[in-house]
Design a protein around this nucleic acid. Structure first.
Lengths: 200, 200
DNA sequence: GTTTGACTATTTTTAAAAATTGGTCAAAAG
DNA sequence: CTTTTGACCAATTTTTAAAAATAGTCAAAC
């Protein structure tokens, strides 16, 4: 019952956050949407950050599920990484503003840094899993999986940040997103080629 | 004589720009340093942008010279790319604030966009030259040099932007710079491995 | 266990005044 | 003809203080 209402609030907040972003959504607005008083909202979430965190984890869990399914379906390493990029794209389109906000976070407060690091780590762990499997399948050479995964994630994130930096804009539109994903796929291809066993 | 004074002004401006950044350096300050009136400064450079542009091109030319020399000394592709990163590091340390500013430019004005694109293109052309040579030397497989160079530059720039994004800061210190260069070198290694001919 | 209205303390927005800055020009100096 | 300058302007940025919005609290009610 309590969890049920918490989930309802999360859903309501998610709608606003993913549309208008975190900063431009006030707790009062969320409370109004739910037809609760603000004080009541604070009964369910100790503060705004707790709500954001709950949403972030929900999205991550949801995404992890899609990744897990893909992992079972796609044995090839490169194919899997490409699928991963498509999944990420899906989520970015779905929760655009929220995800952008989560990536350009407030980095002055401990809890934000912790959340950011957690998200990065989770992303890196997925890549590690894929690389490990690739090594086990005798598809990739042996290498330091941990640091290489970190590098891979950094490259992908960097490409997303750099994107078409020469064109003035703050918000990324659909075309641009496509071009970013395209570059990421290209990079993934060369990256995997760089750590795969030489073709027999 | 006229060019001589222009160069003196460039040197004076460079000192301020590379220390305090472009925005925090006024034309009056530069004029004062040179013991000229501001109006006189505008006799030598039609506006602030012209001065910045002149400085940018001087640094690029200087850097290109170092690159040209390295190209003659280092035949191996990966070694050359690593050398290139070291050269870039040198220049970043030397002209820190200025280069940072040039990368996060005002992207709302045509001339800035043109300068930014020019810098990017120049960087990409150096990489193209290196890749072309690598192909000719039978070290690399044949591929679309133009788009691959663009991708390479995007990866390197992206890594620089992403860097240690989880730690709060605006200015990059020496340690961080080292860690960025390290990641860039790692990425270059895997990248080249991904496009090089399989070892015999 | 839930819900609320009334209440703070802190940020954020707003709007106007003050200061700075990029840039011009006619005229002077060499 | 080239170089230099002080006086000047328009536009932007910085500063400041008041107004509004916001995150978060709490005692009391349901």
């Amino acid at each position: 019952m309590l969890d049920d209402k918490r989930n309802q609030i999360i859903a309501a907040a998610l709608r606003r956050f993913s549309h208008f972003g975190i900063a431009k959504t006030s707790m009062s607005e969320i409370a109004d949407d739910m037809k609760l008083s603000k004080a009541n909202l604070y009964y369910y979430f100790q503060d705004k950050f707790a709500l954001i965190e709950a949403i972030a984890y929900q999205i991550m869990d949801e995404s992890d599920l899609a990744v897990k399914q893909a992992l079972e379906e796609i044995p090839n390493t490169l194919d899997m990484l490409i699928r991963l990029l498509d999944i990420k794209k899906e989520y970015l389109e779905k929760y655009y503003m929220l995800i952008i906000n989560l990536h350009e976070m407030n980095m002055n407060e401990e809890r934000w840094i912790a959340l950011s690091k957690g998200m990065l780590q989770r992303e890196t762990e997925v890549i590690s899993k894929i690389f490990d499997r690739g090594i086990k399948r005798n598809e990739l050479v042996t290498f330091d999986v941990s640091s290489t995964s970190e590098l891979y994630v950094a490259i992908m994130r960097g490409l997303a940040m750099f994107c078409d930096h020469t064109i003035p804009h703050a918000l990324v539109d659909k075309e641009e997103l496509d071009s970013i994903i395209e570059k990421q796929k290209q990079a993934a291809t060369i990256f995997i080629n760089g750590i795969k066993k030489t073709d027999k």
